[in-house]
Design a protein around this nucleic acid. Structure first.
Length: 423
RNA sequence: GCCGCGUUCGUCUAGUGGCCCAGGACGCCGGGUUCUCAUCCCGGAAAUCAGGGGUUCAACUCCCCUACGCGGUACCA
């Protein structure tokens, strides 16, 4: 009995993201959602969200909400209503009874089990890498489909739901490869067509072991809190394993949808590299700034921060943002960039120079410190006194580095400089 | 142990038999632009394509073996 694998060639693509609410998903799990979404949208199909809450003991409070928040923040919108497996118990039990009646499943110690016949053969063409993967029945362990608490296991609920919901492509982590024969067997005994399978390589930590809490495997929400942009995080996650060929590194969500193909996903496990994320984030910050959209991102990020809310509402906010954009790696850098506090106290020698500079500027500029003249004056001073401009920057701004002096002049005016120069 | 999957610069990757003594990007180093820093621009180092056997006129690309890595081996997903 050789099932005609999958087959719903003509029907509309329908995929699902099926997290279990047993913790806040880290970046790897979220990438699975992304790939499902990209695939669905590329093909004009649907993306379903299904919460697999069948392990009552391991459910974590707030995990479900975190999942929603992550998807919402990233712009990964699901179609239709969210499905909860815990609300479908009767359904699963009905099918279990069917298997019991057919003598395919049996009871043992209060749970319902299935033993795959040894001579059974399993093979499928995995969409990632386009390669055949095969197993033989004797390597498939006997498994539980209904636990003694009355809840189904993943294997059972997953297969039933995917069938009933007419899922065409199962795109999930590669940790599921070894249980795929169990799933295929279930499709077989139920007499159902099975979906296509695509198993994504798992993301590894810097030490090349599976990304985990130990590596500080963060969730998208953590990155959000640190000031990363959804555009950058999505771009970064997609490039971890996916590449459409070519030299492009920056992709908008729309471009990714347009280009996404399962065939272009790598088969090897990528290593998470925060440096590249940082670079992409800076790149996206600059890109959004050019599009005039950085302000709204900052407003969202600093919502609830009274001082920053005030700064962003102020009339100088525009120039502040313009001056900061190229210097930010994350949105949180903005706050320190526009912070007026001096970095350290001046040494005696520096104080002396500062006062000299102040006199010089006052004499040269009078009351009006216009940018062009100010710059010329500072350059003059630098040259005639043999003082590196770096020092002048520090004396004027109170910092070793940061926003340009002319921009500071526009934002805070000469009073700011005078205060700094007076020590 | 057994089963499955994988292996191109430090990292993400391009590459589907000749265009590759291997291209791009991040990071790193050097230089330029510049009011500091950053941005931006230019250049550099960096992979004997895991190792060994085949197949072929020709292999990073196909086959086999080994090593290593990852995944699975729960009444977890």
């Amino acid at each position: 009995m050789q099932e005609t694998s999958a087959m719903k060639e003509n029907s509309k693509v329908k995929v699902r993201f099926a997290p279990s609410p047993t913790g806040i998903p880290h970046i790897g799990n979220t990438r699975t959602a992304l790939f499902n979404f990209l695939f669905a949208k590329h093909n004009g199909g649907e993306f379903i969200l299904r919460i697999e809450d069948t392990d009552q003991k391991r459910i974590v409070n707030g995990a479900k909400e975190a999942i929603f928040e992550i998807l919402q923040w990233l712009g990964i919108k699901h179609d239709g209503e969210v499905v909860y497996q815990s609300q479908r118990l009767d359904l699963y039990r009905k099918y279990v009874q069917e298997l019991l009646d057919k003598k395919i499943a049996h009871e043992k110690e209060g749970a319902i089990w299935i033993k795959v016949p040894e001579e059974e053969k399993f093979e499928w063409e995995d969409k990632v890498g386009n390669k055949k993967i095969s197993f033989v029945g004797k390597d498939v362990d006997e498994f539980v489909i209904l636990k003694s608490d009355g809840y189904p296991t993943y294997h059972l609920a997953n297969v039933i739901d995917d069938h009933l919901m007419e899922i065409t492509h199962v795109i999930r982590g590669e940790e599921w490869i070894s249980s795929t024969p169990k799933h295929i067997y279930l499709y077989r005994v139920f007499g159902w067509d099975r979906p296509h399978f695509a198993h994504l390589p798992v993301i590894l930590g810097p030490d090349k072991t599976k990304l985990s809490k130990r590596h500080g495997a963060k969730s998208a929400l953590d990155y959000k809190a640190e000031g990363y942009l959804p555009e950058a995080l999505i771009n970064f996650m997609a490039l971890l394993g996916w590449n459409p060929g070519g030299d492009q590194e920056q992709f908008s969500f729309e471009e990714m949808i347009k280009l996404f193909k399962l065939e272009d996903i790598n088969t090897a496990n990528p290593v998470f590299d925060i440096k590249k994320l940082d670079w992409l984030n800076g790149l996206w910050i600059r890109t959004l700034d050019e599009k005039g959209k950085l302000k709204e991102e900052l407003e969202e990020f600093y919502a609830g921060n009274k001082r920053m809310e005030r700064e962003l509402k102020g009339e100088k906010s525009k120039i502040m943002i313009k001056a900061s954009a190229s210097r930010m790696k994350t949105l949180s850098d903005f706050q320190s960039l526009i912070n007026l506090k001096r970095q350290r106290y001046l040494t005696e020698k520096e104080k002396e120079t500062a006062l000299k500079l102040l006199d010089f500027l006052k004499k040269k500029l009078g009351d009006k410190w216009e940018n062009e003249k100010l710059l010329l004056a500072m350059k003059d001073f630098s040259k005639s006194e043999g003082i590196p401009f770096k020092t002048i920057y520090f004396l004027m701004s109170g910092k070793e580095q940061g926003i340009g002096l002319l921009e500071l002049n526009e934002i805070y005016g000469k009073e700011f400089f005078i205060k700094n120069l007076k020590g």
